[in-house]
Design a protein around this nucleic acid. Structure first.
Lengths: 215, 215
DNA sequence: GTCATCATGTAAGCCGTTACATGATTGC
DNA sequence: GCAATCATGTAACGGCTTACATGATGAC
């Protein structure tokens, strides 16, 4: 799962591990606070596989209170680091000789592979895929959304046959099942919005889809 | 996590592993489809710890299209198995000489311990705890809900400082963050309802709370 | 010079999975 | 007798976490 996150972030910026972790934390709140014990080995594996490589120079705009660069997730992180540092004097620290990674062509291919994967059952992975789905062409993105939609429908229908229809199970369990049903419904509505937006505007195949590497 | 689920289910009915798994599956949909590779070792550990013991006889009302017994999660499972079998001839199968487990006093103590645990960060574990929280006295249950509430508030506030305020990050990421915020809000509302219901009606310490073993 | 933070890594372990092996019951 | 299902287990492995070890940099 982290491979996706790492490749997705590196697609936007060259980064070193430490910074990568911080951005990951911002990406989906505290929930996905990846530990170093996972991150560094993951980077090592990705490097061996040729999906990323060390670049060492050109360490990305990263932390400094730089002018908003328009990068995707970067803004989010900039927001946070500016909250943390508050002093501009620390701006350039850490941005020196560490181990800065960049994505390779093979890595980009791998990223697309992960984004287009047919298995859409895992919630957290799907969230990550949405976060980076701007790397997909519109058609694949739509496919992703609709596969996920089908998965949620399956979940909803499966539970609709059994649970709260009778009032016999205990109150708390019943409430829990209802909450779950509502959550799925909300998720479906969200997905429907995404899908509608996708072929609503006439940006099929163009627009901000499939943004390349360096503009 | 499974310890909680196993003990919670055994508190209601003596069960053997296979049946346990099915009920677990019904409890929270497909998501928590515990595998045998986890279940049996878990049962073994629990037995060694003295939290459960083999009873072998008296294998619980389980599958047969029996009259609704009023048991808690049982109804839910009965619903399902009646859907699966559809023929009454198979009713008594499996309910013979297998390995039926029952909860011990130590196990009940352990269950309470798990339910009252202060760590309320894990979503799935919390859901399980709600499913079985009728085993707690009203005060502890309220505490559980409110600790969870605080956790969710923490999550919400943490993200409110950074994300979608500026319109710069890509559309999909933005939508994702919004969805997440909404989900947390919905969860908070649900919890508030639970909390209100808890000290709203005057069933503090009585009512369906703390239902014993065999009626 | 010392402390906090940045930064990279390794080792041990937990928790859970899939895949495999085995056998009893029952319907046909 | 054969296949499906019920039923119990073991082995190997995967992914992620915590804890530990190390060291550079910069603030004070």
């Amino acid at each position: 799962m982290f491979d996706l996150a790492i490749l997705g972030l590196l697609e936007e910026n060259d980064l070193h591990g430490y910074e990568l972790r911080k951005r990951l934390g911002d990406l989906l709140g505290v929930r996905l606070a990846v530990s170093f014990g996972s991150l560094y080995p993951a980077l090592g594996r990705l490097e061996q596989a040729g999906h990323v490589k060390v670049v060492t120079s050109q360490p990305a705009p990263a932390a400094p209170a730089a002018p908003m660069s328009g990068s995707l997730v970067g803004e989010l992180a900039a927001f946070r680091s500016h909250r943390r540092q508050s002093s501009a004097s620390r701006a350039a620290r850490g941005t020196r000789g560490k181990k800065v990674y960049g994505i390779t062509d093979a890595g980009r291919e791998r990223l697309h592979e992960l984004l287009a994967d047919p298995d859409v059952a895992d919630d957290r992975t799907f969230a990550l895929r949405v976060a980076f789905c701007h790397n997909l062409p519109s058609a694949s993105r739509l496919e992703l959304f609709e596969r996920r939609r089908a998965e949620l429908v399956r979940r909803r229908d499966q539970r609709s046959s059994a649970p709260g229809s009778d009032g016999r199970v205990n109150t708390y369990l019943r409430s829990l099942v209802e909450r779950d049903t509502d959550a799925i419904a909300a998720d479906l509505a969200w997905l429907d919005r995404l899908i509608a937006d996708e072929h609503g505007p006439d940006n099929d195949g163009v627009g901000d889809a499939h943004t390349g590497g360096n503009p």
